[in-house]
Design a protein around this nucleic acid. Sequence first.
DNA 1: CGGCATCCAGATGGATACTG
DNA 2: CAGTATCCATCTGGATGCCG
Lengths: 126, 126
Amino acid sequence: MMGKPERRVFVNDEDCPIRNVVAQIGDKWSMLILFALVDGADRFNSLKSRIVGISQRMLTQTLRDLEREGYVSRTVYPEVPVRVEYELTKMGRDIVKPLYKLVSWAEKHHDEIRLCREEYDKRKDS
Amino acid sequence: MMGKPERRVFVNDEDCPIRNVVAQIGDKWSMLILFALVDGADRFNSLKSRIVGISQRMLTQTLRDLEREGYVSRTVYPEVPVRVEYELTKMGRDIVKPLYKLVSWAEKHHDEIRLCREEYDKRKDS
DNA sequence: CGGCATCCAGATGGATACTG
DNA sequence: CAGTATCCATCTGGATGCCG
């Protein structure tokens, strides 16, 4: 009896762990910043020059978000001029591991995906 | 000589594999749909009821995008009424693996992240 | 049943100017 | 140096109505 296979149900709300994590790091800059900090602590303007294309506004904002999530720590050294260093926390170094898996997958399938897109678009033109 | 450690530079453009993959699956519904299809092929309205909160519009649109990327295939059975089934392609089943790593990480650290947020917000109030 | 078209609110993010 | 503040264009996604 009841031979129907159980199909899982998914809810996309604030309590969904998938969304809770991906909503934060799925934006335009978060992952790039996390990976930039894997090389070690770095300061604001250095990050800004290493992450090509990011604006001051978005770097500040994304760093604040990452700090709030607990991935990044912010340390102010009251020198003149002031020096501010950002660094991965334990959790930041931790989440980078599964993210690496995803990135290496992405690098490996980069061309394949672009091919799929082109063929899809070609089919839609006809 | 040249003792300075090399710091990597990151560019967020259309050729960046990180962005190229994450920009697609980092949106509000893509990952949920991919995981729903891990259970096997499913049809439009079944997906719609299993993914709680998704609108018809967003389900259609996200499925089209996933199809374009090559993660999902769409098969029309010309019955009456018409039946349309969506299924993971080889690449779809493939990307789910690194995504699982991320999701299990997310589930494990769900509470920790929320705690970080609360404490961060508390510090900012003061 | 499985869509598409339209409209619209809110979020995202870029440019620019100013500050401790 | 490391931001904040403001303005504004674009993107995202929800609601609704219609269609083969």
